[in-house]
Write a protein that binds this DNA or RNA. Structure first.
Lengths: 245, 245
DNA sequence: ACAAATTTGTTCGTATGTATG
DNA sequence: ACATACATACGAACAAATTTG
């Protein structure tokens, strides 16, 4: 246990603070990489020669400050850096990831032609039952899964979009190849819920941690809806940022 | 059990779909009011004469579509209407609630003078250690708890704000009484996490359901930060809406 | 479906030191 | 000097979630 070392007692600094500071220093210096598991509370309390409560107090501090993530029954982990995801009219997955000095990538999970249900039809300005391509796509930043996007695209206007997407799993590129070089996000709705088991697996996260859920409508320069996307994000790794003019 | 009635089997429509549709119809027609508890899965399975798994499939469908809320160990409930909470430069709690035809109110939980820590000082454009008033406020819509806001206000600029707040638990009104008739929201950060036990109690929600977390900076007309607010919202009752110009 | 082992979460109780009035 | 409040620290036991067999 390299973390442990004798602690000066009665020196005016609470033991839990000293412990938190040592762990923090290891994390900030990179000696404890993001995602790595910390020793158990029992191990730490033995290592530092303090009571388990004292360790827990230190962990609570680190957890509150977002440096570690504690999961009941599993252990404690060095927190991953959160992706700052600006929500605005030019919200593009790959641009946002690249702007954070990470490498974006994506994998198409499913491509399916369906008839638009009530809600999707309304948002796309179509009649119910019109053909829509449903694209499920897993998005990555630096090979870590970030989101699962379910995109609904009207096939009446973009009949060749499925073909383009199977060639290159980028929504923006597929639209460009179908004659729409630019689009903008009109509205985004944000909420949160617990993940389905499948979502938790795909996002590589615990089932007891929440996901952020967005529903967005993208429109062409004339204001005509071209896509409705519903996406889930691992909440622990994501922070949406809304700048107000 | 008025919900139950014989179901046509082998008619090409899955039993769980028929069950889900019946329950949905009752909810949409208002026969099952928001927040009321549904019969247990065991009762429903007896009532419809199907296996409990079939009921569960129907409930999962309804739950995914946001019509019901299922809580392990407690039961299933008709989902409350979600509050649509627009995020923009004029984000004001009471105005938003009123715009949804609900009655806003608030209760101050705590008022405390503290020294600004690193993060708050940075966001407020102060030096660390400067006096800041921390206000914890529970916000209601139609007497239902909606959010817990923790507001940080620089006392150097607003020395009398605590007094105003104890008279009227509205942040906007307190600022107005302290000579700031108008302010705007500059940036909002949104994420989600699980609630603390206290948060779950105050929000009247299950501890196994997530909360949305916002961090916002409000500035005066000159762009000077006047308040940092960190708020948690019951995710099941809240949807943030971001319109992009 | 169940059981065991592991790990964090919660709640008791006790004791000590420090700041405050 | 004394009482009080508060944060710190330790100990024990049990609850709850997760993983594994």
């Amino acid at each position: 246990m390299t973390l442990a070392a004798p602690l000066p007692r009665g020196g005016g600094v609470a033991l839990w603070r000293q412990i938190a500071q040592r762990i923090e220093a290891r994390i900030l210096s990179g000696q404890l990489a993001a995602g790595t598991r910390l020793p158990t509370e029992a191990e730490l309390s033995r290592g530092f020669g303090v009571n388990r409560h004292t360790i827990r107090r230190a962990m609570e501090d680190l957890s509150m400050r977002g440096l570690v993530r504690v999961e009941q029954g599993r252990g404690s982990f060095v927190a991953e850096e959160v992706v700052e995801y600006p929500i605005g009219s030019r919200t593009r997955f790959s641009e946002i990831i690249r702007a954070q000095a990470r490498e974006p990538s994506g994998r198409i999970l499913r491509l399916k032609e369906v008839e638009a249900d009530q809600r999707i039809a309304e948002l796309l300005g179509l009649r119910r039952g019109r053909p829509v391509l449903v694209v499920e796509r897993l998005g990555f930043a630096d090979r870590r899964p970030i989101n699962i996007g379910t995109h609904h695209i009207p096939l009446g206007r973009f009949p060749r979009i499925a073909e383009e997407l199977s060639r290159n799993p980028s929504i923006t590129a597929a639209f460009a190849a179908c004659g729409l070089p630019d689009y903008r996000r009109q509205v985004t709705r944000i909420t949160a819920r617990m993940p389905t088991p499948e979502e938790a697996t795909l996002l590589g996260q615990s089932r007891s941690r929440p996901v952020l859920l967005t529903e967005a409508v993208n429109v062409d320069p004339e204001g005509q809806p071209v896509e409705v996307s519903i996406a889930v994000y691992a909440a622990a790794r994501m922070q949406f940022v809304v700048e107000s003019a």
